[in-house]
Design a protein around this nucleic acid. Structure first.
Lengths: 191, 191, 191, 191
DNA sequence: GAATAATCGAGACGGTACGTCCTGTCTTCAA
DNA sequence: TTGAAGACAGGACGTACCGTCTCGATTATTC
């Protein structure tokens, strides 16, 4: 039944959650992750600093959460349909990802960077962001093997890492990610 | 003729350069990039803090420089010999890189992270660290095409990005890099 | 009604005010104004450095405040009683001041010096320290005129400046201030 | 014969002495003693920092010297002439001093302040600046006693300290020194 | 309805690191 | 030996954040 046992005391203001997330996202996009202090986010959201700490342990957690609220969707779809080849599916997935990164790449880069400096955050980031996307591609490649589009001896896990690794590498080194790259990667996997 | 015009004023103590670099490297390995302050490095090196600021603008610059002094070598060799296949060359190169990362991976991760937060540093990092290694692999793959080990239609640039991207991706997500992975990547490229 | 509206936020630790002042005074007496850093005062008081900056803008402000807490009293009394001549009152006042300066003259000299280098501090110093003492003597001299101890044509303001100026001059040039000087000054004024 | 034995090596550039003094005086007048660094003076004079240290031990020494070069004259004259009363002499002396302070009071205040913070400088300042002026007034008052302008029971030393102390006190507390004050002080002494 | 308890805005707290500035000494080359 | 230049050790400065804490006020649940 999932009965929501309400605790005693003043309940948390749920509306503030979103206000803070929005403020965080806005500031991170404007000034870059590093140049945004929690104090600044709280002020922008019109909220006490403690109210931020009540909800998220670190800045990285908060920003990760904020990015999700905004981009959580684009990991879900891509359920392969029979009429379209898996290669096209992969290409379409990459195009969607690249489009999003185009407008918000700096934030992703900041999150990857933050993950290198904080083990806890790295864990959260991998579980909630990296893994779902990686597995999505892995499943797609297994489907491709089932359909005969990809040879059996290929290793879907490794290929998935190569796919993501390729655009991470480009992204982290300051390149733009365009649809051409999406096509090339897909071609290279399914050559 | 490259005449070495000595500037006026007391010359910098060249020995200190190295002492500082060594101190930086030691501390970063022991405590992690984030947990090392410039003050600490200066103290460890037995040097005034200003002497550090005289040489490097930021901690990232210093550490990058220190890592070079230590690892600059392993980007140079790998001149392909005719009696060994390019695939074996690539595998050997990756094994060497992975061995080094095994003992010093945290530092590389920290440098990649730092590059995401500082455009100037990103540039230096790419020019002095990333590019040489990327081009080394690219040249190796072109040699492979010349020898007929790799099909003409493959794109060496993209493949090189995939090779590096793959182990960056693994590294950045907390995986260990072992010789098995080196073999798998090489196999995947030359399949 | 002087309603004490409590400001929002965590209130300042009023006890710390005093701890810091005491630490400042102690260190300044031991080592001299110049040789005491704010960091040292904070450490001595067992307080964060920021907590000092939260209360006082400069070292001089802090020390001025500290000296007050300690010496604020000796500007107040000296309410002239009819049975004692104004000259004796002046002499007693000067003796009291000189006694205090005997143990703490270095601090007063440092404050006068600090006032020469910072207009804001000069203002605070004059309003809170110099003026009250100057006016005390001025009033005493006016009372003396009323009693007929001092001729009407004397200028109490100027005489007060001469009284203070004389021992400032001695103090600033490294002389000791003893009761003999107190007597001589009083005699000179009431000759 | 006072033969000037010329030392071996490059002789000191005598012209630089003056250039440095002028630069020091200029900067101290513009920005105030505290806000001028030796580095700044050296740069303004177009001279190496060491060249300053070669000539003066401290900033205070240098500035003291510079002020002398400029004001040394006005302590010398005032040899009392029989046709003018000592009181008029004193008044004239004070007027001259006040005129000079009017344009350069900040520097004197800075020197007095510096003397409070450095015993060596205090000594130099007293011997070379304070004493001559104090004794000048003392001698003038003795002459006055000889002439019968001042009673025998007055103490010239104390009166001289009162005279100087009065305008020091005014000066150090930010008052202007005008001819009116000169007259009042002289009148008060000779009343 | 009173007691209890968590949240809110606000801001002080102990800390840590930063990058700048200045001092007085030392070291180089050239005059 | 001096001069210009500039590096050196050392240390204080004031600022910026961090994550914790302490207020009084508010808003809910529990007794």
């Amino acid at each position: 039944m999932h009965e929501e046992r309400s605790k005693p005391g003043r309940p948390r203001d749920r509306a503030a959650d979103d206000t803070i997330r929005k403020a965080a996202l806005k500031l991170v996009r404007e000034r870059g992750y590093r140049n945004v202090a929690i104090t600044t986010i709280a002020r922008e959201a019109g909220v006490a600093r403690q109210s931020v700490y009540n909800r998220w342990a670190t800045k990285a957690d908060l920003v990760l959460d904020a990015v999700f609220e905004d981009t959580g969707r684009n990991a879900e779809p891509a359920s392969p349909t029979p009429d379209i080849s898996c290669r096209m599916h992969l290409e379409a997935f990459l195009e969607r990802v690249f489009d999003h990164i185009g407008s918000d790449g700096g934030t992703l880069r900041a999150l990857i960077a933050a993950a290198q400096e904080d083990p806890d955050f790295q864990n959260a980031f991998r579980e909630r962001f990296v893994k779902p996307r990686e597995e999505l591609v892995t499943r797609l490649l297994i489907e491709a093997q089932d359909r005969g589009e990809l040879p059996r001896w290929a290793d879907p896990d490794l290929l998935s890492a190569m796919v993501h690794g390729t655009f991470w590498y480009r992204l982290l080194n300051g390149h733009d990610l365009d649809h051409g790259l999406a096509r090339e990667i897909a071609a290279s996997v399914f050559r």
